[in-house]
């Protein structure tokens, strides 16, 4: 159905070639200085195939994902543009998708978004005009049928590689794989999961995903990331929506002397990568290292994923 005139994105090309793909999250600045984006991107660009520009994650105010993407494409980096349903209605979102495509943004990650209550403006009005699946399908419609949701024509359709998020670690566990099937049917071509700290649970999830045959239809990137300390782990699992960290990992960090904890956190992350990378149906990893970008390159290097495929 998809117009074959479209060219592949670098990220898509890596996935299609069967090579293990790596994406990483860029921590959005609280600043109007583009240099802050470039400084963070410089570290990431050489070690991953796509840089995620988050859309006010955790409902905290930051530089917007679209503008970060614009800064990144300007210098030839490949962003993954995250759009959440929390802050914008269908009119704004569809306009942003066209604008993003015009700026050379190709990879789009459609997510529901954390509620405003999780962030620094809990009194804000939450929008949620779309849910993530409706957003995905609308984006696909814009690309494949060259029309808005209203049916009105688009003269040049946006060339998009569509993605969605998945959280295998939140209830209702048995329905999560089927919900993934809905996302795939709505248009998802790649998936980036929530942080994986419970490999056994993830294996069970992937077993069900394979049962449904979804691993043949969508590229799955497992969310991973280094924990800075046992405090950070405690904070994340109690305050960040959807993050599940088993006790045994928190205990392991706690037993480690304070100064060594960051190193231990990185080690845990690399152990998890090592375990998940060989699971059938896993196409890559998505690294989220909150305020620890420098660790991303170490992790990628030491896990043996360098060099990355050359960009065309």
């Amino acid at each position: 159905m998809r117009n074959t005139n479209f060219t592949e994105t670098q990220f898509e090309r890596v996935l299609k070639s069967g090579r293990f793909a790596i994406t990483a999250e860029l921590n959005p600045p609280d600043s109007a200085d583009p240099e802050e984006v470039y400084r963070a991107a410089l570290i990431l660009a050489g070690v991953c195939d796509g840089i995620n520009a988050v859309d006010a994650s955790g409902a905290n105010c930051h530089m917007s994902s679209l503008s970060i993407c614009a800064l990144l494409t300007k210098v030839g980096y490949e962003p993954v543009y995250q759009i959440s349903c929390r802050d914008r209605n269908r009119i704004a979102i569809q306009g942003d998708i066209l604008g993003a495509a015009a700026l050379g943004v190709r990879n789009l990650l459609c997510i529901t978004g954390d509620d405003v209550s999780a962030g620094d403006h809990p009194g804000a009005k939450a929008v949620f005009d779309f849910d993530s699946i409706q957003l995905l399908r609308t984006a696909r419609k814009m690309r494949d049928e060259s029309m808005y949701l209203s049916g009105r024509k688009i003269t040049k359709s946006p060339d998009l590689f569509l993605g969605a998020a998945a959280n295998p670690f939140a209830p209702p566990y048995d329905w999560r794989p089927q919900r993934l099937a809905k996302k795939v049917a709505a248009g998802a071509q790649f998936i980036q999961t929530q942080y994986c700290f419970d490999v056994d649970k993830f294996k069970e999830y992937m077993r069900q995903v394979r049962d449904l045959g979804l691993h043949d239809l969508v590229y799955i990137l497992v969310g991973v990331g280094p924990l800075r300390s046992h405090r950070a782990a405690e904070f994340m699992r109690s305050k960040v929506p959807g993050v599940v960290i088993p006790d045994k990992i928190v205990e392991r960090l706690k037993k480690t002397p304070k100064k060594e904890q960051q190193k231990e956190g990185k080690l845990i992350c690399m152990e998890i990568i090592d375990e998940v990378k060989d699971i059938e149906g896993v196409s890559g990893i998505h690294i989220m290292a909150y305020r620890q970008e420098e660790l991303v390159s170490e992790i990628v290097l030491e896990s043996g994923f360098l060099p990355r495929p050359i960009k065309k």
Binding site: T112, D131, Q134, A170, K182, G242
Partner: peptide
């Protein structure tokens, strides 16, 4: 609270 129509968010 997010008036989702297609299934749960990741925050459960």
């Amino acid at each position: 609270p997010k008036t989702l129509r297609n299934g749960p968010c990741g925050g459960v």
